[in-house]
Each structure stands twice: as C-alpha cells, then as structure tokens.
Design a protein around this nucleic acid. Structure first.
Length: 478
DNA sequence: CTAGGGTTAG
C-alpha cells in the first residue's frame, strides 16, 4: 500500500499538484490509469481535488467512472464542489442522495460540514434542517467541533442566531473557530427570529452581544486571532461604537495580530461609518496588502461621507496599482460621482464596466446611473436608461426617478415614474405622497386632489404620519 | 491512514 510512510508522496501526485490546466490534469489522469494508480482511493481523491479546481465537469466525469466510490471519495468530491463550484448545490444534493440510497455507505462527520456550508443560504434552509436530523441519526449527539461549528454557521447564515447560540452553548470546550463562528454570527446579525416593531433586519442588540461574547472569549483559554477581531470590529461598525472599535484596533496591535486585508477592511469600514475618514485613510496607507475589497471600503467611505473627488482619486489609484475592480467597486465609485455631481465621470465609469472589465451591469448599477443622471436633472436620459435596460426595473429605480423629478419640478416625468411605481407596489402610500407633495409645492391643488383620488381608487386611503421610530442604543461602559 | 468548520465592501 502506498500510505505506509506518511511523508511519502508518489511522484505522479507531486506532478498532479503542479497542474494548472485541464490539459495537464488529463495527462496525469491518463498516466494514473495506465499505472493502476487510479484504482486507489487516496490518489483518486487527490485527482478529484485538483481537477475540480480547474473543471468541475471533469471532476464529476472522473467520479462517475469510479466503480465503488468510498465515503472518503464522496466527501472529497462534495467538499471540492462546495469550495470550487460556487453554485453547484444541486450536484451536491444528488451526490449526498447517492450516499443515502447506497446499501453500505453512511455519511460520517467529514460529510456534514461541507453540506452545511452549501446549504447556508435561504433557499436551502429546509434542506439544511433535514440534514440536521441526519446528523442526529448518523452521528448521535456528536462532539465533533467541525460538525458543531458548521451547524452553528448554517443557522446563523439563515438568520437563526438564537439556534446558533443554543448550539454554541452545547459545545463544551469551544475552540478558536467555534468562537469565531459565534462572534461572526452575532456581528452580522440579520436575525429573522425576534421581530420587534423597530426591527429592520439589522438588530443592534445582536451586535452588542458580539462585544459581550468577545469578553467571554477573553476569559476562556482561547486567544482571539485576526478572524475574531474582524467580527468584533464589524459589530462595532454596526453599532457606530467608535470607542469600542478603536479599542479593538489597539487590542490587535497590542497582541501582535496582523493588519491583514480582512482586519484592515473591517477597520476602515468601522472608522468611515463612524465618520473618521482620516483614520480610515491612514489605515489604508498602512496596509501592505490590498485587494479590491480594501479599495471598495475606502472608496465607499469617502463616497458616503461626501468626499466624491477623493473617492475618485482612489479609484484611479486602484487602476494604476493594477487591482481589478469588481462589481461593488462600480457601485461605490458611481455613488461617489453622484454625490459630487460628477455626472460625466460617473457615466464613463458605468460604460467602462462592460467595455473595459467585461462586468455586466446589474440592477444596482443601473440604480446608480439613474441616481446620477436624475440628480443632475438629466431626467429624460434617466428615463431612457430605465426603459432600455436589459432587466426588469424595480421600484427603487422608479422611486429614484420620481424623487429626481420632484426635486427638479418635472411633473410629466414624475407622473411617468409614479405610474410605473404604482404597478410595482400599488399598496404603498409613500409613492403617492411624493407626487402629491410635488404638486403642492407649486400650488397645483387640483392635482393634489387628483392624486388623493387616485389613492382612493387604488384602495390606499391613509396619508402616513411622519413618526420616526427611535431605536434605543444601549449604554456601554468600557 | 487520507477529508471537514471561522474573516473583508453596498
């Protein structure tokens, strides 16, 4: 057998690790077939792992030629699909079903973590719940940290932070990744559980709990690392808690944690959301590794805080540094142009998306474009963009146009926008109010009454009050 | 015996 000596690596497998292309993988595969290496589980698992990085289809075709795959090979393929495949959840399901329907195969503790990772988004929630019962069936009350952490993350990603907490409390001696999982769960906190009247999906009390959990972690035997800091800082950013965020920053420095791009991005986001653009920018300069996300954070920070020109400078710097912008880069950069009134620049950025970078504009990019043109009073162009865009415009776009029409006193455009808005959300009174206010502002009271009648005709009969719900931010002592 | 969980932006 080939794995008697743990340091032994078959030369063919060494070669396999260097393969960058499908062509090279195929050559090694052919060699493995002729030498009989492809009859053994471990070499096959390496082959699956490396080929899935290049071509999922090829990995699947290799797998389908294996006469009696072991659970080990199923696990290898499932995890490769989850990490390399992106949206292969259907293939992942069918592979897992093959395991279940097999007479002798049984899922083990290595099978579940990748599956929970694959099911960690809303459309797959019910699949993940079913899988949870499989954990109980096949593993009983397991104390496997990997299985427990993957379950915890699954429930958190589907908005069930309470379940995550329950599962975390079941873990006897949480390790670093378990702590980081629960910290991240609270820091990102989009809970669907406790629906309070003021809840809009981002509950600040959950972020606050992340701060308390960090304290608990410090009292435990596990030392926080960079990942822990990222969660802590994100929680502070959500709370707008500058003092605690700054403390987290200094904690990282005191404990010799690295200012990697993850920590850097989280800190920049925190500082800019707290209005400390100078600190965010200082940090940006200190980072010695920067990717598109670092740039997005600082460009977005400048954009939101009204420094459109500085944001654009950084966008240029990014291009000079040779960092390829992603779709978020275009959102934040166009937002910057919009706020600074740099219409031509913003349009150019939009056009360059597809022409230069081959990124198809999404709905939100059209949203930025309409906002950009609308603010500048170029309403006709904005409308044309909405009418000719390749996907169905949503209410946000029409509302943006309605708002712009209102600001620029363009009644015809306002009515066009409203007509479309009413079709998309006929029950929302806010849309009518916008138009009605527009007429009122120029003393066209007949039209105000006409809009009111329109509301009545659509069964919307309440003008909303203007009560803002104050969300009580709890007092923190540090 | 080999494999599996945690981090960044709007």
């Amino acid at each position: 057998m080939m794995s008697q000596n743990p340091n032994f690596k078959h030369p063919t497998l060494q070669l396999l690790e260097k393969c960058q292309t499908l062509h090279a993988i195929k050559q090694v595969h052919a060699h493995m077939l002729t030498t009989g290496l492809a009859l053994h589980t471990y070499p096959l698992s390496r082959l699956l792992l490396f080929s899935s990085a290049v071509s999922i289809a090829y990995a699947l075709s290799i797998f389908n030629q294996i006469p009696n795959p072991t659970i080990f090979l199923f696990n290898t393929l499932i995890s490769s699909l989850v990490t390399n495949g992106g949206h292969n959840t259907y293939s992942v399901c069918s592979l897992y079903n093959r395991v279940l329907s097999h007479q002798t195969l049984k899922p083990n503790s290595f099978t579940f973590p990748s599956l929970f990772k694959a099911f960690g988004s809303d459309p797959w929630f019910q699949h993940g719940r079913a899988l949870h019962t499989h954990v109980l069936k096949f593993l009983g009350s397991t104390h496997d940290h990997f299985v427990q952490a993957s379950l915890l993350n699954f429930y958190a990603k589907c908005g069930r932070v309470g379940v995550s907490r329950y599962l975390f409390d079941q873990i006897r001696e949480p390790d670093l990744a378990s702590w980081n999982s629960i910290l991240a769960a609270y820091a990102h906190s989009t809970s669907t559980e406790c629906i309070s009247s003021a809840s809009n999906g981002c509950d600040s009390s959950l972020s606050l709990e992340a701060l308390y959990l960090f304290k608990d972690m410090q009292r435990s035997s596990v030392r926080p690392n960079e990942v822990s800091i990222v969660a802590l800082v994100s929680a502070c950013a959500n709370l707008g808690a500058l003092i605690q965020g700054t403390w987290a920053h200094s904690y990282a420095l005191r404990n010799n944690l690295k200012l990697n791009r993850f920590v850097g991005t989280a800190l920049m986001d925190m500082y800019s959301r707290c209005g400390c653009l100078d600190l965010a920018h200082q940090l940006f300069d200190q980072l010695n590794e920067r990717d598109a996300l670092c740039y997005n954070a600082i460009i977005g920070g400048f954009a939101i805080n009204g420094y459109g020109h500085r944001a654009l400078c950084l966008y240029e710097k990014m291009k000079i540094e040779g960092i390829v912008p992603d779709d978020v880069t275009f959102v934040v950069t166009m937002c910057a142009c919009s706020h600074a009134g740099l219409v031509e620049e913003g349009c150019k950025v939009f056009e360059s998306m597809e022409e230069v970078y081959g990124i198809k504009p999404k709905l939100e990019h059209y949203g930025c474009l309409v906002d950009l043109l609308g603010r500048a009073g170029r309403l006709k162009e904005a409308e044309e963009r909405i009418q000719t865009m390749p996907m169905k415009p949503n209410a946000i776009l029409w509302r943006s146009l309605l708002g712009a029409a209102s600001v620029h006193g363009n009644l015809e455009m306002g009515e066009v926008a409203l007509k479309n808005l009413i079709q998309l959300e006929p029950e929302s009174s806010g849309n009518y109010v916008l138009l009605s206010n527009m007429y009122a502002s120029i003393d066209r009271w007949d039209d105000v009454n006409r809009v009111r009648k329109l509301m009545k005709d659509h069964g919307v009969n309440k003008m909303p009050g203007s009560s803002l719900v104050e969300i009580g931010v709890p007092c923190m002592s540090s």
